[in-house]
Write a protein that binds this DNA or RNA. Structure first.
Lengths: 200, 200, 200, 200
DNA sequence: AATGAATGAGATTTCATTCAT
DNA sequence: CATGAATGAAATCTCATTCAT
């Protein structure tokens, strides 16, 4: 149980992370300055370094902090659904919801983290498989109960399903095509994506 | 018809672009130095600035230069195919081929260009729709002849199809999962992706 | 007579000084942080500033505090010796003893204090003459009683004698040549140094 | 044979080193900024880094560059002297000359280099033995021909002789006692130091 | 046209010092 | 008295870009 001091310490770390998400999303990780983040968080430049080892560490910590919450959200959402098709639909819905509610965070996850240092890139990909594994789980179940086609290669499908969903989300974030709402997109993505997997 | 001098000028520009592709892929756009590119290209630092306005311009020029060739490749490949399903398969095959033959280029397209400056982000998206429009063309045709379901939203589908393909390619590049060859992946991706679109 | 409270105040100041000696010796005055000293002393960073005006002041106070004890040690040791040659031998013995017993302190005296700010440098030299004056006293006496050569310039000799002793000590601390023990060195240093001064 | 370009490159490196000597002597290594050195050298800040890896490297390079010249000077000066006593006198004379002609350099050698990072400290001591070995050579010769006492421990004597000379020099630089000229000091130092070593 | 040394703005990071608790 | 989180000035170093040769 955190003492009052620890709690406020955690709160400040959180505040800096939120600021970083906002600033990195807007300016990009490399173009953004630590100074920018500090200003957004309302702290002094040096304060950042009391909570994070360096700029890279800030990005990594941000990622881990947020990732934890996101994976939880997915688990909670999928727990009570048994039909794999419904699970897949729910996965997409949750994913789009997350993005709709925090586009800045999504930008950081989808764009900023993917580049940066080679080290960070590797790191990202490694963490990234968390997402893929959720989908793999759904596919496996669906295959076992004969819902999905037996020739379907789970390993490849989990990737392309994720890619499909992710790209729809990214394009929405980038607003390149603000012509669609994410909720519309959910229907379309589900229908078309899922039908291809069915066994019958 | 270019004179000999002009030709060699073009050749040097090409050489710098190739060097940039290699260096940006390996180090990332921001982490790579202009010096690195110059060394890789075998020219002096200053020479780069005789051919490109600045570092950003090098990335953009690189993109445009390559994009032209790639779009040509696609057009040529799809020209003589009339069945939309076959066209989609061909699109995937060509895409995977491109990536297999020049993974560095793909990295730059997929990762570096997606972020960089906000300015570049916008720029990228605009160019990016060229890709998407090829897919859109295929879908439109397929819909018109009743091959694809009439409820299918072309605008969203072109995006998610691209995302699916792209992600399979990215994962292959990253080698995170070297467990699949791109040719295997082609089958799986086509089958599952396309079946969902069929009208019957 | 100090109250209990004052005593504990003095004790904490002492504790900080000891910590500073250790830390400065190991890391060097500039490379060491106030935080390091605080940690070594087992107090908070800010506490240091309740006892010392700033980092420079810590070094100066350290010096003065230690210097007092050292000069006392010398005075006590030399008090009951009348023969100047024996006094010189004793001086060397005491000096080497000090260094053997507290090499950290010696490092701070010999190395750290010598540089630092120009201000500190001046300060050091000024305090430094305390040492030299002890030697000068011995030489004067020896000259007066005809023990040391009359042409001997006390002013220069006090310096070079100190330098000789000090360097032997420094080399021992540095361990660059751990080949000699300080007690061996005492003999050699005394013999050779002193013989040159004799009048006969 | 250096080309014109290489020559001017070497010249600029030299210019920066001279500036560094001056600035480090005046302000101390840690208190001085790279900016200060750049200004003194009449170049831009960044230029320093074209010639030296970092601030530490500047100090080390400075040391090595100068050390080479100094050792040469000693070797040339001692080459044609056979009497070890005369050699020792000459050593002192040359040493004092060097210091008189370039007090700034001496300060850097004597004060700045001795502290700085632990790494530099070690480095300094290692290079330092070059000096000591010259003296050791003289002592050895003098002992062999029965000029110096046979009980004399060369290893310790080389150290204390150097210390004696060095301290006289340092005090002169510091001007703490501008009361003596270095040439006066030479006589005194030689006489007193050397007499102690004689065998008869 | 080509070179690459030089520039200097600007970014990251450190750390002595302060002050609210 | 003591604490230690916060500050922000300042230092080192990088690197895109320029320009004399």
């Amino acid at each position: 149980m955190p003492t009052k001091r620890e709690k406020s310490k955690e709160a400040k770390k959180e505040k800096i992370i939120e600021a970083a998400v906002k600033v990195f999303a807007k300016k990009g990780f490399y173009t953004a300055n630590v100074k920018d983040v500090a200003k957004e968080a309302g702290v002094a430049d040096g304060t950042i370094y009391l909570y994070f080892k360096n700029k890279d560490d800030l990005l990594i910590s941000l990622f881990e902090h947020k990732m934890r919450g996101i994976l939880d959200t997915f688990k909670r959402a999928l727990k009570n659904i048994s039909d794999p098709l419904d699970q897949l639909k729910e996965f997409i819905k949750v994913y789009f919801n997350l993005i709709e509610n925090d586009p800045d965070l999504s930008d950081v996850f989808q764009v900023e983290l993917r580049q940066s240092t080679k080290f960070l890139k590797d790191y990202h990909n490694q963490q990234f498989s968390n997402y893929l594994n959720i989908i793999a789980g759904i596919l496996e179940k669906g295959k076992k109960i004969g819902f999905f086609r037996s020739e379907m290669d789970i390993h490849i499908c989990k990737i392309f399903i994720f890619g499909a969903i992710d790209e729809v989300a990214r394009q929405w974030i980038l607003g390149a095509d603000a012509k669609y709402s994410l909720s519309e997109a959910t229907e379309q993505t589900c229908d078309n994506l899922v039908k291809g997997l069915l066994a019958f």
